[in-house]
Amino acid sequence: MSNGGTPAQGRKEGGFEREPARRVFAGELRECRHQFREGDDEKSPTFVLLPTGERSNRVFLVGTLTEKQRKGEQNIFYRGRVVDPTGTFFVMAGSYQPEAMQQLAKIETPAFVGVVGKPNLYQTPDGAYLVSVRVESVTIVDRETRDLWMLDTARATLDRIDAMAQGLTPDAARVKEHYPALDPAMFRKMVYEALAQIKI
């Protein structure tokens, strides 16, 4: 767990390995501007490229579910906002994730929730980008779990920033191409401010 690691190299030809759930703050996830698919197969996983230099097919996030909305007529789905100290995650669960949708329907806001899901990058007609997390599972958690997640995510984010500074990330070229103007210092600052909000 020491640095940004080797997500892509770990994948064996033909073998199945579950994609790890990356720890990322809302303030970083909303800056994603690039999504790509590994391999040509229909079932190949898609990744969003985190601005700190790591690809992510799945995320684990903990925050406060502040709002949820039932949408759709025929195809019912739920949308929700999960807030951490750096910003807001947009989550959604539809009929393809029946369990997650029922869970989301049941939880009363506000509540600390732990969410596992897949991030997707969308562009609105006016050109704005939106990252939404398709929920695989959501459960109510306690404050301690939220605090543990903050530490975990702070460490993972700093690890990614350090790995990128040392040129250790396998997606370095992609980061240069898609985030040319990005300054990693802003994410370091974001981490510091997030940590400072934890009351011990």
Partner: peptide, 9 residues
Amino acid sequence: GWLDDGEKT
């Protein structure tokens, strides 16, 4: 189930 440390599951 699956236990995930952020790098490996």
